[in-house]
Amino acid sequence: MQLPDAEQLLAILADRIHPLLADNTVLVGIHSGGAWLAERLQVMLGGDIPLGSLDISFYRDDFSRIGLHPQTKPSNIPFEIEGRHVILVDDVLYTGRTLRGAMNELFDYGRPDKISLAVLVDRGGRELPVEAQIVGFKIDLEARQNMELLRDEQGRFTLRLVEGK
């Protein structure tokens, strides 16, 4: 299967986010792929949008089944969430469970005015009513397949399809 170029998709995301920017807009990337993308988007969009990141390990709904993720990273929201338009950024949208965790965590920082979701790839397979407002690329994958975002040493992004059993 021919996968789209992740760098081109990123440019598409930036173009689609641009018209949404206002004084109260902030970018929040979800660890780890979403945080990488949000970092790049912030630069592409002029560099002055407040930037944060979330690690949702403490909000996962599968904690009682699989325990705490072995590597948690501190979430970093260096601004008030109250009254902001938060654009959440993630690499791949799948079941929607990560986004539920991310929104729960966000509300523990304050009450945002509005939350939008920007994803590089929407691969289908939702288990919760979560949709992205800004999508780089849409594809329907089977449950055994997995889409991953990779970042090389130069910081360039590529997508990889992992075939499971």
Binding site: D55, F58, S75, N76, N104, D108, Y109
Partner: peptide
Amino acid sequence: SFAGVSEREVKKVPL
């Protein structure tokens, strides 16, 4: 990671 939680508005996580 938990040190950051104690500095937030809501100092609680649902784990």
